[in-house]
């Protein structure tokens, strides 16, 4: 058995330690907000927080996450994610929507570190998150909007 802390809950799981965290979250825990896109950390659709840092769960063996706090989009709380999700809806960022959980996670992590990001900061933080619908302009716009909200 393997122990894992997910969204504030300590869990015991009977899974192989080489199983990617992504598939444990989805297949075992049914936390399906985290998406599969590539399986090799190229697209960012599977982004979760590991001890608060954005991490690609598709290349993270669950065995390596046993001591860490895993937070998925379902477990995110706080001003930053609320501001990000509100901006995402207000600006109608999503098209197909598949990559957007990962985009929201990366954007939230950025705003926690950098409350007033420049366009260059946004490019750096979001470059690992592919969007095939190319909603990039609205992602940038929404991050700026969320930053303004957080500034009050």
């Amino acid at each position: 058995m393997l122990t894992l802390s997910v969204n504030g809950r300590d869990l015991s799981l009977d899974v192989d330690p080489d199983t990617p965290l992504l598939w444990v979250l989805r297949d075992e825990l049914r936390l399906t907000g985290t998406k599969f896109g590539c399986g090799m950390a190229q697209c960012g659709a599977c982004t979760v927080m590991l001890d608060g840092l954005p991490t690609r769960s598709c290349v993270t063996p669950v065995g390596s996450a046993t001591g860490a706090r895993v937070t998925t989009i379902e477990g995110m709380r706080g001003r930053e994610i609320e501001a990000v999700q509100a901006a995402w809806a207000a600006i109608d960022v999503p098209q197909c929507g598949w990559c957007q959980s990962g985009q929201v996670m990366s954007a939230t992590a950025l705003l926690r570190e950098t409350p007033r990001p420049s366009d260059a900061d946004i490019d750096r933080a979001m470059s690992g998150n592919l969007c095939r619908c190319a909603t990039y302009l609205r992602i940038r716009q929404a991050i700026h909007a969320a930053a303004r909200t957080l500034e009050g």
Binding site: R26, D27, W88
Partner: peptide, 20 residues
Amino acid sequence: PRLDSAAKANGTAEFTLDLY
């Protein structure tokens, strides 16, 4: 406003892969 934006921003929009 689009009817599907909020659900797609919070991970609750249901896609095929999410079905068990």
